[in-house]
């Protein structure tokens, strides 16, 4: 990919263009896989699992608006995450990698065991959460939309209805988490 193509791809990534994600995925993969295999003695399957986990994190950061393109190039960021995950995996002596577990490890690397357990329970709770609660909580806690914006999207009429609905959904999620205890 030329520098010009890279710049154009970054603009497309910012717009959430799936084709741009795929282009970056394939371009970075050709650098990452041979390098990580040689560097850490990984087999093809494990190298791919690591790469896909690292790329999923990058994808989430771009989608969630927290990736700063001026601070880091996508490839540099993806390779750094992949390297970090590889180091952790080697420390744990894992022979088979679970990409979901790798992703979890990335997001919880600073957390204590207690918080990790709580997050696992939250993830189970979110899996069981039904609509419209799932979308509402996602808009508030992930997309960082205001109650007014959520109310408009969900045709609630006014922000107070959204606020009440959000509290109900949160309580329902807490019940689901407790149920699994």
């Amino acid at each position: 990919m030329t520098e010009q193509e890279k710049a154009a791809t970054i603009e497309s990534l910012k717009r959430g263009d799936e084709k741009a994600f795929k282009a970056i995925y394939l371009d970075t993969k050709s650098q990452f896989i041979p390098w990580i295999k040689t560097q850490y003695g990984l087999n093809e399957d494990n190298a791919l699992d690591l790469y896909q986990s690292a790329f999923s994190v990058f994808y989430e950061k771009v989608e969630g608006g927290s990736f700063n393109f001026s601070q880091s190039a996508p490839a540099t960021y993806i390779i750094a995450i992949g390297k970090n995950l590889a180091l952790k995996t080697l420390k744990q002596n894992s022979k088979v990698l679970d990409p979901k577990e790798l992703i979890f490890q990335h997001y919880t690397q600073e957390d204590g065991e207690e918080k990790k357990v709580l997050l696992k329970k939250m993830l189970l709770g979110l899996e069981q959460l039904k609509e419209p609660c799932k979308t509402l909580l996602e808009m508030y806690y992930y997309k960082k939309m205001s109650l007014k914006e959520i109310g408009n999207k969900m045709n609630h009429g006014n922000a107070n209805v959204t606020k009440t609905q959000k509290s109900r959904c949160l309580n329902y999620l807490k019940k689901l988490i407790k149920k699994d205890k």
Partner: peptide, 8 residues
């Protein structure tokens, strides 16, 4: 954080 993990 849970939503970030779920998204990824």
């Amino acid at each position: 954080a849970a939503f970030q993990i779920k998204k990824a």
